[in-house]
């Protein structure tokens, strides 16, 4: 690692101020950033830890919305997001137990790894990404692999998930990293079904609109029977071809629908 200055502010305001410096970077749980720094692929002058900001931690549910503080760990979401069981279940399978004790939802969404789990939940839930400056709809937030609507120095302080009538997340593991080779999150709301896919596309997390339309009409696995995902934009690598990923999207979506009930 290149060396850097480490600061751990206690408030969002102090964190924003610290991030105003050139080459300062926010540190969530560090489960992705620290390995990146070890490879010397990033050289921040200052790391601003968000782990000391109490107002950014915790899970609460009210009026059909689950709010998760940006610095809340996956482990905490797994334990405390009982109001949104599919989300708690997703969080309980990110990485491994030790990673879940450090990694945070804000860190995951800010990084927007194309194989991460949380982006699919946020997008399928039509979640709102709350930052120190504004609120961003999930549909506007994800802008391709490792790319988001966040401005320089902007911090995710919370994520608000409308709680669906039914939902499920299906993850098919990439056997080495244990990230999603493909992950599909299906959420059924009164006004329709949303399906978000992670791991599969060169463009990062995406909504499978044909499936959404079919499932909004009829929320059954069989409703997907005639649908196929175009392999053209899928990721192809040593763990699976484009065609295989496209195939898995269909299988996992069906399974998510069946599991969601």
């Amino acid at each position: 690692m290149y060396n850097f200055e480490f600061v751990k502010p206690a408030s969002v305001a102090d964190a924003v101020a610290a991030l105003g410096e050139e080459d300062a970077q926010a540190l969530g749980g560090g489960q992705t950033l620290i390995p990146t720094l070890k490879q010397r692929l990033a050289a921040p002058s200052k790391l601003v830890s968000l782990s000391g900001i109490a107002e950014m931690k915790g899970v609460s549910a009210a009026d059909g919305v689950l709010s998760v503080g940006g610095a809340t760990t996956h482990g905490t979401v797994a334990a405390e997001a009982g109001a949104y069981p599919a989300l708690a279940d997703l969080a309980s399978h990110i990485g491994d137990p030790a990673v879940r004790n450090r990694g945070t939802i804000g860190g995951s969404l800010a990084n927007n790894d194309p194989s991460a789990c949380y982006p699919s939940a946020a997008l399928a839930s039509g979640a709102t990404i709350v930052t120190n400056a504004r609120e961003i709809a999930a549909d506007d937030y994800f802008q391709g692999m490792f790319t988001t609507a966040l401005e320089e120095g902007e911090i995710i302080t919370a994520v608000k998930f409308p709680i669906p009538e039914a939902a499920n997340y299906q993850k098919f593991l990439q056997p080495a990293s244990r990230f999603a080779l493909v992950g599909v999150f299906v959420a059924k709301y009164a006004d329709g079904v949303r399906v978000a896919v992670t791991g599969a596309s060169e463009d990062g997390v995406f909504r499978w609109s044909e499936a959404e339309a079919a499932l909004s009409k009829e929320f059954r696995g069989d409703a997907l029977m005639d649908l196929k995902v175009d392999p053209a934009n899928m990721i192809g690598d040593l763990h699976g071809t484009k065609e295989y990923r496209a195939h898995l999207v269909g299988v996992l979506t069906k399974r998510a629908v069946v599991a969601a009930g």
Binding site: G30, P35, N101, R102
Partner: peptide, 17 residues
């Protein structure tokens, strides 16, 4: 760390203050 399992190679020492 404070009772929770963590990967000590993926946590800064200063985070354990």
């Amino acid at each position: 760390v404070d009772g929770a399992a963590v990967k000590s190679c993926t946590m800064l020492a200063l985070e354990a203050e």
